[in-house]
Nucleic acid binder design. Structure first.
Ligand SMILES: NC(=O)c1ccc[n+]([C@@H]2O[C@H](COP(=O)([O-])OP(=O)(O)OC[C@H]3O[C@@H](n4cnc5c(N)ncnc54)[C@H](O)[C@@H]3O)[C@@H](O)[C@H]2O)c1
Ligand SMILES: NC(=O)c1ccc[n+]([C@@H]2O[C@H](COP(=O)([O-])OP(=O)(O)OC[C@H]3O[C@@H](n4cnc5c(N)ncnc54)[C@H](O)[C@@H]3O)[C@@H](O)[C@H]2O)c1
Lengths: 210, 210
DNA sequence: ATTAAATTGTTATTTTATTAACAAGGATAA
DNA sequence: TTATCCTTGTTAATAAAATAACAATTTAAT
């Protein structure tokens, strides 16, 4: 398979989620324009994405939802799944645990890490919280490949170095401090303020042109 | 000014944040490659973005940080600022309030809304929580232009309709349900699972090619 | 005074992403 | 049967974003 565009990977994840929802409602087949409506994009975009993963629908019934879900799973997931750690069990970290637990069985929140004595050795939403000093050991023991950083911003760089050293392969950074990691570690960063300011900018712009 | 690319707007917001940080540390001037390092992008990208907003640095000292911050402010902010509402004062809503309060003075969290009697009329992180029935009144009274949705996913579409009706101009949706809004309302959506699955995909891919 | 080094600003090029266009298939109904 | 209507799959065209290339300028060093 030739390499998938970044944006296609994102959309496949989104498609899968709404497709699972459809399945849960007893729906068996779906047309490209239906998927498109669920994600406010165009049907062409949907068909193109699906073409890129080599799936083929039927002309009159559209796509078989179960088959499509399974195929997206083959592409995104690994057979054994991957284990995820959350670094920093504060407001955001705990909210994330609540949100993620049970959503995607292939991505298991295997451990939390904090520095605060009150939090270490407690269990949050079913997730054991370890002291950050136990990072390297626990990452190996639990075979953790992905980490989500939700510590205070000034800890970010230090934490990311520890993660790389511990052998983590992918990092999702929610702190506002951008970090640098070696090429073999995949990094994704997101900051809510950026999104909010972007909305603010376009609201302002629209106001001017009304 | 010709219209700014979407991505440039995002980056300007990010630049500003790290520039404010530099200012706080007493730094007065900065080079494009320094900004680039802070955000792991290329210096050319930085210069191009800055060119697009019509700012000009000096050849030997680079950019005057204060001037650049002020100019980005003129572009992103409105003079009076904008007021923001958070709909759904749950785990994520409260985490967001904590995070956003005091960060950007021009974007003020003016109100929270919930349906739960225990939460209504309480104050969270300095933000008054109203019953969702008071949405329209409060939006007008407080001149709220932007809303962040953090309710359960199955409420999303209903909430978004209420927001549009109340005159909201921009929506930032953190629930996993995509919504449809009229053209005059700017919509930004983000789902953490998408980001996490994207990381998982690229970790898997890298594993294969190692 | 001249050269070398560093940096900006800007245009050109390349890459990535989206959208348009349309052939082909197959159900339905006249 | 034949025409009509939808739909998919795919290529072609367009648009958006990122990168490369490089002239111009200024300082510092020789
Ligand atoms: N709250 C939000 O909605 C939100 C949104 C976007 C980004 N963020 C960012 O996410 C981060 C966390 O936000 P929060 O509101 O959860 O903060 P928080 O203070 O509630 O939580 C931070 C946690 O990290 C722990 N910690 C500190 N140093 C650590 C270390 N070296 N190793 C491990 N754990 C450590 C703290 O003990 C604490 O439990 C911040 O950087 C914040 O800017 C938060
Ligand atoms: N927790 C996370 O980290 C996280 C991350 C990403 C997305 N999300 C999404 O964000 C949303 C909120 O997550 P959460 O963990 O905060 O959930 P939560 O259950 O803690 O909070 C939801 C809040 O919304 C309120 N609510 C319910 N119906 C309402 C209505 N009609 N109007 C106003 N308020 C209403 C509830 O009373 C509750 O206080 C969910 O859709 C979730 O999928 C959460």
């Amino acid at each position: 398979m030739k390499k998938l565009p970044d944006k296609t990977v994102e959309r496949l994840s989104q498609y899968r989620r709404s497709l699972l929802n459809c399945l849960a409602n007893g729906k068996k087949h779906i047309f490209s324009h239906e998927i498109a409506n669920l994600h406010h994009i165009t049907p062409v975009q949907v068909r193109r994405d699906i073409m890129l993963i080599g799936y083929t629908g039927t002309l009159r019934k559209g796509y078989d939802i179960q088959e499509l879900v399974d195929l997206i799973g083959e592409i995104i997931d690994t057979d054994e799944g991957q284990n995820v750690a959350i670094i920093g069990i504060g407001n955001l970290g705990r909210a994330l645990i609540t949100y993620l637990q049970g959503k995607r069985s292939k991505l298991r929140i295997a451990a939390g890490f904090d520095i605060n004595k009150d939090k270490v050795d407690r269990v949050y939403g079913g997730v054991q919280c370890y002291h950050i000093d136990q990072l390297e050991d626990t990452v190996q023991k639990e075979n953790i490949t992905i980490a989500i950083i939700t510590t205070p911003a000034d800890e970010t760089q230090k934490i990311s170095e520890m993660l790389v050293k511990a052998g983590i392969r992918g990092i999702l950074n929610y702190t506002p401090t951008a970090i640098n990691v070696p090429d073999h570690v995949y990094l994704e960063e997101y900051d809510m303020i950026t999104s909010l300011e972007k909305v603010a900018f376009f609201v302002k712009k629209n106001s001017l042109t009304v």
